[in-house]
Amino acid sequence: MTEPIVNNLTIQAATVNGSGSQTANLVLTRAIFHMGIPVAPKNVFPSNIEGLPTWYQLRITPQGHMARSDRVDILVAFNATTWREDMKTVRPGGVVIHEESYSTADARTDVVYYPVPFAKLAKAKIASETLRKQLANMIYVGVVAGVLGIPWESLEHGVKRQFLAKPKAVQVNLDAIKVGLDHYQDNFSSSRTRTASVSTPKPERSASQSFKPRTS
């Protein structure tokens, strides 16, 4: 990216249907909205057939635009089957957060890669085998939070809000997010320049005044 962009970007998560990605995407949505930033999500999914690809787009704009965008700034590539095609949607200079095992040898050279060993991290850091698949998605929430600078307080809000009816699930999901956030901090925070970020709007930015940060 040539210029840093703040609160004006489109994130696309390309995942596998039925893997728990919808929950992760909703947590991300709620965390960003909690910061007082207008966010418009769109879920594109196949006919509820488990295993097929699904895409979740988060549109973040100061004006609160709610239409879909064809221009992806940040791709979370979490589906081995579609990731080559998904790469084509990223704008030049955009960011690609991907499973480390996906080969970028002959991939685009005009984007910034964040290779993350999601599968290895899940295996090493998530004790429950049955929850590992779902919580791996939460790890990418942590990495995205690191890339964009989403504060922990907002992530906590997103998780608590998402699991209102299942309070026992809060901590295990926060732990998974922390795995991703720690991985970002240990591996990327010092070596990469933050080119896209989210930041709580200042009150004088009238376009966002109707979306004040929530206090609860």
């Binding site: 949505t29 966010v39 418009a40 999500p41 769109k42 879920n43 709610m66 109707s210 979306f211």
Partner: peptide, 11 residues
């Protein structure tokens, strides 16, 4: 389907 199945910001 866009209005009916996606999340939207709203007053």
């Amino acid at each position: 389907l866009d209005l009916g199945m996606n999340l939207w910001m709203t007053p």
